[in-house]
Structure formats: structure tokens, C-alpha cells
Amino acid sequence: MNPLKKFLFELQEISILSFGALMALFTKPRYIPETIKQMDLVGVGSLPIVILTGFFTGGVLVLQTFPTLSYYSAQGQAGEAVATALVRELGPVLCALMVSGRIGSAISAELGSMVVSQQIDAMRALGTDPVRKLVAPRIFALILLLPLLTVAADVFGIIGGGVIASNIYNQDTNVFITSVRNGIETQDILGGIIKPVFFGLIIGGVSCYRGLSTRGGTVGVGLSTTSAVVQGSIAVIIFDFFLSKALQTILDLGRL
């Protein structure tokens, strides 16, 4: 199969799998305990790394932009710069990349191992649909919790920025907070929450497909895991561009 054909085929399979999983949420049987378990893994499990990533990203943004802003006597805008960058772009994307690395790899490895040890076949033989039992809870957990994790990354990013601004550049905390409040609008927050919904779907779809299409024993599991993280992350970054453009138009965001 030539690369273009393979790409289109995989895109089609991922779309069908994701669509099937989403449709399974509306009909019985639903696997609520499995969904809660996945929500715990995705949400609670990823919270520490997302908070750390957000905090230090916010901090480094202030660290890098403050001197330039000072040069133009615009250091009062530091909060606005950090908040806008984080809420619109860095929060959703960094959070998605962290979750893609942590959860995407785990999903792919788990499903891949189940494929090579015939557990998926056994599940089907016992009358259970693996898409309903395994894929739907994972995609649902990602769609629901990635926006919440993004909010956590945004908040801790702004806190990180504030800590650096006040401790290293001696900016008054109130000035920073006021700048943040002036900088972000409802549409920014809305856009920053809509994006991770799609990212969750992408990460879930890609990693579940990679896991379920594993071939070739333990070596295959390793390859699937790598592919899930790499392809999931690249897809998030590419899709982010088009989604940003679409949101700019729909929510009237970031116009000059």
C-alpha cells in the first residue's frame, strides 16, 4: 500500500472507530465503572504533570517576555501576555501533548497487549463489543477531562507567571492580576475549552486505533505505542492550527 493510500485508510479507520465509540455512548450497554476508572487515570493521574507543566510554562513566559516588555515600558502588560498565550494556545496544546504522552501511550500499550495475547478476540468471543467496552470509555474520559486539565494548566500557568513577575521582577501582584483580567475575554476561555474537546477525541481515536491494530507480538506493541504518541502529538499540533483559524472566525478571536 502506498503511503498516501495508507494514510487515507488509517484516517478512515480512526474516524470510523471514534464515531462508533461516540455512538456507543448513546446506547446500552454502557460500561460506567470502566469509564470512571479511565476518568481517574486520565484526570487525577495526569493532574500533577499538567500542573507542573502549566506552572513552569507560565513562569518561563514571564521570564522571557518581561525584559522586552520593560524595554517598551509595557511591563504592566506581562499578565495579559501570559494569560492570552496560555489560555488561547499553550494551555490546550501543552496539556494535550502531555496527556498524549502519558495516556496515549498507556492506552495503546494496554490495547496492543490485549490484542497480541488474544484478549480482544476473547472479549468478542464472549459477546462483548471491544469498541463499546474499551474504546468508548477511554475517548469519553479524554473528551471530558482534557478541558478540565487545560483549565488547571491555565490557572497554574498564570500563577507561575505571577510568582516570577513578583519575585524576580518585583512587579506588584495586583498589577499582574489586573493585567490578566484585562487581557482575557470570555471568547478566549471558551476557545481554550473547545480545543481540548477535539484534542481528546484525536488522542483517544489515534491511540485506541494504534492499540487495536497492533500486529507482531511484543515488538508490535512497542511500535504501536511509539506511533500513538508521535501521531497523536503531530495530529494535535496540525489540527490546532486549523481549529484556531476556525475559532477565530466563529468566536471572533484574535482579530487585528
Binding site: 495475547s117 484478549q119 476473547a122 468471543a125
Partner: peptide, 16 residues
Amino acid sequence: VRQHIGMVFQEGALFD
């Protein structure tokens, strides 16, 4: 149909 069929896999295929 699968409700009437039992399947024993090569390595058991138990859910870990």
C-alpha cells in the same frame, strides 16, 4: 450467535 459458542484460546487469553 457467540452466546452459544465457547472458545478456548491457545494461551488461555485470560483478562490480566
